[in-house]
């Protein structure tokens, strides 16, 4: 088993971290363009019983991350 999985990372985390490092090590002119692809604009709302659940749930989920 690889070290990053033992540390509790999924492959997505692992490859994202690798990608971020690669983007930051690019030359300045390419870096700006690449950093734009690094952004994320997602908001995640847990749903329960057919409607959005209160914040409480979200915290338990993010702590699981």
């Amino acid at each position: 088993m690889s070290a990053w999985r033992q540390a509790g990372l999924t492959y997505i985390n692992y490859s994202n971290i690798a990608a971020r490092v690669l983007r930051r090590s690019l030359k300045a002119d390419l870096r700006n363009e690449a950093l734009k692809r690094d952004e994320s604009h997602v908001r995640i709302t847990p749903w329960a019983n057919g409607r959005p659940a209160p914040r409480l749930n979200k915290q338990t989920n993010s702590s699981a991350l």
Binding site: N16, R37, H41, V42, P46, W47, P52
Partner: peptide, 29 residues
């Protein structure tokens, strides 16, 4: 889903076109 199992997600994505990081976050969730 929610009635049966609980824990479904609704995602809100902003004005910009989707990036791979968005998809990664969603997959992570």
């Amino acid at each position: 889903r929610c009635r049966g199992e609980g824990g479904s997600y609704c995602e809100v994505i902003g004005r910009l076109p989707p990036t791979f990081s968005d998809a990664a976050k969603l997959a992570e969730a």
